[in-house]
Amino acid sequence: MTSIFENQKISPEQLPEVNEHDFVPLDPAYKRYLFLVYSLTTLFLVAGAVAFQYFSRGTGVCMWVYVLVYVLVLLFFIFNTLLINAGFPLKGYLLREHDLIYRSGYLVRKITAIPKNRIQHVEIRQGAIARMFGISKLLIYTAGGSRSDLSVPGLLPEVAQQLKEHLTLSISKHE
């Protein structure tokens, strides 16, 4: 297949590439954080299933329905555990001269890039559970609506702070 760039002034070889090996992995605490979050969600689901079983007593619900519900909850747990395990090493960010790139996703791999000269503002957030694990999340807002805002989770607070300062500095440079 011939490249779409064939009659352009610029050829793709001249462009800076995103090197997959340069991505900085997230802090391992984030993996434990994810496990905990999904375990808690599973617990909620189990509670829901138990409540369902309790309240539907005597309404003639077939036993297999209960089995199905529990199997689904179990599958949810196994599926997420596998996905976190497989997906975690793929998550990472990459700070380049002119942009910030975040990579994630195992089933659907996503690489999102926000140029520094398009960043509106930067924020650090830390939820209650994340605080227990000592990790923060960096939120990057653009003018492209909420779907294009980028969040980089699983950063050590000092790393998040450094990134924030760096990006904020580049915002003021571009204004």
């Binding site: 610029i10 800076p16 590439e17 140029p115």
Partner: peptide, 16 residues
């Protein structure tokens, strides 16, 4: 895939 990567890099280059 290759074209997608090229376009990704190209667009970033144009913005930056």
């Amino acid at each position: 895939e290759k074209q997608a990567r090229d376009i990704f890099n190209y667009l970033l280059y144009k913005i930056e």
